[in-house]
Design a protein around this nucleic acid. Structure first.
Lengths: 111, 111
DNA sequence: GCGCAGTATTCGGTGTCACTATGTACCTGG
DNA sequence: CCAGGTACATAGTGACACCGAATACTGCGC
């Protein structure tokens, strides 16, 4: 992963995960695998777990331990009301930032 | 500034500044003022100056001291070849990330 | 002439975040 | 038994934006 990507993920990775959880509950290993499929090939497992611990401690998600047939019990996270509010905020912030940045992109002005 | 914005600016602020400098050379105070006009109202002056020092040390910009009629001499930064390369990289990273994130954005109207 | 506001830059300390590296634990197949 | 996939946790590191304060140069009003 490039250094630029590492820095750019700060803040956005949390939104990304919240957005995923808003669609469907999921557990850490699953989310990591999904991110890798999406092209975040080098995302570190530890990063995702740490993020999940963080949003749990902030009360943005509810957790349920679910036994797995294939390994240790899973911690399934689901977005709660606080989490949805935080996700809404994320979209506002993202829209603002992405709007400002797109204005600066050379291709932004068409021929 | 919201905490979300603070985190999201990590990595993107540098790209933002490089993009500004690709249009025209500028000095710190000027860049800060411009950012504030663009809606980054609470951007910290110290943040911009620290960023400029950083990209100077990485050799992405050339610097020229220019006397000011209104205060102490200005440090005018201009993007060099390395800086343009780094900016190109930034756009690649940005496009990738913003593409993944936009896929997750609910385009509907339900919540 | 003196303080004050606007201009312009610098710097030490803080908190947050992604990454690295490693460890633990559970299960199945060879 | 043990190798490999599944699943989670965490101590330490580095990078970055922020805060607060300091420094310095100028022109203006009093």
């Amino acid at each position: 992963m490039g250094k630029q990507m590492t820095e750019m993920l700060k803040g956005t990775l949390e939104g990304l995960v919240l957005a995923v959880l808003s669609v469907q509950s999921a557990y850490g290993y699953e989310i990591t695998a999904w991110l890798r499929e999406q092209g975040f090939a080098d995302i570190a497992e530890g990063t995702v777990y740490a993020l999940l611990v963080r949003i749990e401690q902030r009360g943005l998600v509810d957790v349920q331990r679910v036994p797995s047939e294939k390994g240790p019990p899973r911690k399934v996270y689901s977005l709660n009301a606080s989490g949805r509010a935080s996700l809404d905020e994320f979209w506002v912030t993202w829209d603002f930032l992405s709007d400002r940045i797109s204005h600066l992109k050379p291709q932004g002005h068409h021929r």
